[in-house]
């Protein structure tokens, strides 16, 4: 049977919005927190992340399905470095752009980004190239939108400027330029996304219903809700504690009986 893939709109709504890699899956936080203090760095890091994500996912889907997982993970790093390091050299040498220390360090770190590894392992190697590409593009776009919002808000509110142009604002919130400010912004953005989620889910259902013949990609694992994991882990530890309590009670009961 010919394998069918979902449309890009469904994939975008699911991978980029409802299961946003940054706001919902909480991956790719490292560059957002430390390097994304202005629009320029947000654009640069988003572009490099999208490139790395798409190329690595497509290669993983096309060539790496039979390679053992342990080797595949190292290959993702290799592909990332092969893309990013020449790009960094080109930017530094030929564009004479002053990248600043934080961007300079965080660009190579994108090669080991959790977004790429997670989507290559959970989606790309289990699906055809087209699905891997549309998932990578949607995830990259989803992360880039968040990065751009964060970069813009942090520059405007934290430094009183936009793309380096001074806006002469009466108030500047210096804390937003610092890592804790980014986490707080991310918290409010995630809450806003959660508030709109019911409407977005309805839209997704309508889109999916409009394409009845199409099958969903095997990407449910990638979009596991982190929160349910935490609750599950908590339930497991509570079960263990309950079992321990029961055992202790039995032990004490046994001792009392013996006495």
């Amino acid at each position: 049977m010919k394998e069918q893939t979902p449309g890009f709109r469904v994939s975008f709504l699911k991978s980029a919005v409802l299961s946003n890699p940054v706001l919902v899956q909480m991956v790719g936080l490292c560059p957002a927190v430390a390097a994304m203090t202005n629009v320029r760095s947000a654009v640069l890091i988003s572009a490099v992340l999208c490139l790395d994500l798409i190329v690595t996912c497509v290669l993983a889907s096309a060539l790496m399905k039979r390679i053992p997982r342990a080797v595949r993970v190292a290959l993702y790093l290799g592909i990332g470095l092969a893309l990013i390091c020449p790009l960094l050299y080109f930017i530094e040498t030929y564009t004479l752009m002053n990248l600043g220390l934080s961007i300079k360090v965080y660009l190579p770190l994108l090669a080991v980004n959790a977004v790429t590894a997670l989507h290559c392992e959970k989606v790309a190697v289990k699906n055809p190239v087209r699905t891997a590409f549309s998932d990578a593009a949607a995830v990259g776009l989803g992360a880039s939108i968040v990065f751009l919002i964060i970069g813009t808000l942090r520059e405007v509110l934290g430094s009183g400027a936009f793309a380096g142009i001074d806006l002469d604002l009466p108030i500047s919130l210096k804390g937003l330029s610092l890592p804790f400010g980014c986490f707080i912004l991310l918290g409010f953005l995630a809450a806003a996304l959660q508030a709109f989620s019911p409407y977005l889910r309805q839209a997704q259902t309508r889109e999916t219903d409009a394409q009845p013949a199409q099958t969903q990609p095997a990407q449910t694992d990638a979009q596991d809700d982190l929160w349910s994991d935490i609750l599950e882990a908590e339930a497991v530890s509570n079960e263990r504690l309950a079992a321990l309590d029961e055992f202790t009670e039995r032990l004490i009961g046994g001792e009392e009986d013996a006495q």
Partner: peptide, 15 residues
């Protein structure tokens, strides 16, 4: 409800 899950965790990590 809208702060349950990742929003609350982000705010906690921020603090």
């Amino acid at each position: 409800p809208i702060f349950r899950g990742s929003p609350a965790l982000f705010l906690y990590v921020g603090l």
